[in-house]
Simulated assay, not measured.
Amino acid sequence: MFDRKYLARLAGVGAAATMAIGLFSTGAANADTFVPLPGGELTKTLSDGTVVTVRLVGESANINPSLGSTPVHRNAWVSGSAQVDVAGAEGGAIFPGYTVGCQVNIDGGGVEGGVDGSLDWSDGENVKPGVGADSGGNLTLGPGQSQSFYVLDLEQADDYGNESHKKRNKFSGESGSVTWADETIGLNGCGGYAQARAFVSVEVETDNVITWVTLWGQPFSLG
């Protein structure tokens, strides 16, 4: 027979094990969700015959739908690579970024930012996102609002030696690329469904044409 002290110790171990299982279960419920994304490719011939090809490859998102256990906060870490080929021009500039929306469809035309950002959808392949986020991907959006931000923030001296920040990677020759990993999207204030969508805008300048070409990635849910 077991004495009472031994049985009490067993009961304590069982309670501790039960508590540990409960903690593990809670953690699993709040675990991050890895989302592989298909990226995309777009080829456009400009009016002067210049051929621009834009690719979005290796795209993914790691999503935490409720950081801090609050229903109005989401957090995601996004990665990808933008690759550009320009045949007939000598260089360009790559502007990778994301558009985030709260209870708004960002899969088509008519999207306008309710804060500072905007999207000109007059030509689907020449969309130049308006950028209004002051702190990278840390956004506060209410229902029906969207906002865009650029991934890059390159610090460099301007022509007068002062500090300046550029949102693009400028390249010379016929190809260029930008790769980013674990770029943060932090969304506050959205009590409904939220989505995000990558874009790669390319500014191309030739002897005859200055234009933007934009490739859009697939929208994905932030929870």
Rank of each mutant, 00 (worst) to 15 (best):
M1P: 14
M1W: 02
M1S: 13
F2N: 07
Y6W: 14
A8W: 15
L10Q: 13
A15R: 10
A16Q: 10
A16S: 11
G22F: 09
L23D: 11
F24N: 10
S25N: 08
N30F: 08
T33E: 06
F34G: 07
P36D: 05
L37I: 09
L37H: 14
P38L: 01
G40F: 05
E41H: 02
L42K: 10
L42N: 13
L42D: 11
K44Y: 04
L46Q: 04
L46Y: 10
D48M: 06
V51F: 04
V54Y: 01
R55G: 04
L56T: 00
V57N: 14
V57K: 08
G58K: 02
A61C: 05
N64D: 06
P65N: 07
L67Y: 13
G68H: 03
G68M: 05
S69W: 15
S69T: 09
S69R: 14
P71R: 03
A76K: 10
V84W: 02
D85S: 14
V86Y: 00
G91Q: 10
G91Y: 06
G92F: 14
A93W: 09
A93G: 11
I94Y: 10
P96T: 01
T99S: 05
V100S: 11
D107L: 05
G108D: 12
V111G: 07
V111M: 04
G113E: 02
G113H: 01
G113I: 10
G114R: 00
V115Q: 11
G117N: 06
D120W: 04
W121Q: 08
W121I: 03
S122W: 07
D123P: 00
G124I: 15
N126E: 11
K128W: 09
A133E: 03
G144Y: 03
Q147A: 12
S148N: 15
D158S: 09
D158P: 13
G161R: 10
S164T: 12
K166L: 10
K166Y: 11
R168E: 14
R168S: 15
F171H: 06
S172H: 03
G173V: 03
E174T: 10
S175K: 12
A181G: 01
T184C: 12
I185K: 08
L187T: 12
C190T: 15
C190A: 14
G192I: 00
A194N: 14
R197I: 01
R197C: 01
A198E: 09
A198P: 00
V200L: 09
V209C: 00
I210N: 08
G217P: 05
F220V: 01
S221A: 15
G223T: 01
